[in-house]
Nucleic acid binder design. Structure first.
Length: 217
DNA sequence: TAGGCCATCTGGTCCT
DNA sequence: AGGACCAGATGGCCTA
């Protein structure tokens, strides 16, 4: 049973909005498919010169290189024309790359705008934004699961510590995404399983090092 | 001044 | 062939 009838409560809305932005940013950042891993890992170990060399081998097909086209032969382009075309392609590619990075930065800005931050915090860096979004999504998911547990078995909950007295006041609202529930994070004491960084739940780390950004990791 | 972060350029690779 | 994506290189700016 969901924590609300329609799935449109503030908690669900906030989580869904963040998740959408995160997917957008992530899709811009990398096309990461598990089946792609082996190829990508093996390519990491190759130096650019190695890659260039293997590509050169491919183009040659281990056969003798064809002779250079000479003036008058079909397909021959004057060197200055070829150079001009190459420069033109490079300028266009640079322009596309710049736009691509601008789009990526826009997606990151959109993601930053839905993450709760302290008012006096400096702008999150790119890596901080991604790590914090990861932790934030994890925390919201945990909160949803806890809320679901209480609503599925309301009679089983400890009446000395009613859920709606202790937690409802701190559910995140759409108007103020920074009003994030903290009680469960503080008591949970565990963190999302993350690659190789010692990932902490935001408030767990916040207790250890207030007024620093260490809670991002 | 060293180190972190960022924007940009560039060449390689993959895909359509 | 051309576009998208990626990673390395480089230089500028900022901060401790």
């Amino acid at each position: 049973m969901p924590c609300c009838e329609t799935g449109s409560c503030a908690l669900h809305n906030c989580k869904n909005a963040l998740f959408s932005f995160f997917l957008l940013a992530a899709s811009h950042l990398t096309r990461f498919y598990p089946e792609d891993m082996a190829d990508r890992l093996s390519s990491v170990e190759r130096t650019p010169s190695d890659a260039a060399y293997s590509n050169h081998e491919k183009s040659l097909g281990f056969q003798k290189r064809k002779g250079k086209l000479k003036r008058g032969q079909p397909g021959f382009k004057s060197e200055s024309l070829a150079k001009k075309q190459k420069e033109n392609r490079r300028v266009k590619a640079n322009d596309r790359e710049r736009n691509r990075m601008h789009n990526l930065n826009s997606a990151l800005d959109a993601l930053r705008s839905v993450l709760p931050t302290f008012p006096d915090d400096a702008k999150l860096t790119k890596i901080e934004t991604l790590r914090f979004a990861h932790n934030y999504i994890w925390a919201l998911t945990e909160t949803l699961q806890i809320a679901d547990q209480y609503l599925v078995a309301p009679r089983q909950r400890d009446m000395k510590e009613p859920f709606f007295q202790s937690s409802s006041a701190c559910l995140p609202s759409l108007d103020s995404p920074s009003s994030v529930c903290s009680s469960e994070w503080e008591t949970a004491g565990y963190s999302p399983s993350s690659d190789n960084s010692p990932s902490l739940s935001p408030n767990d780390a916040l207790q250890r090092a207030p007024h620093t950004k260490s809670w991002l990791y």
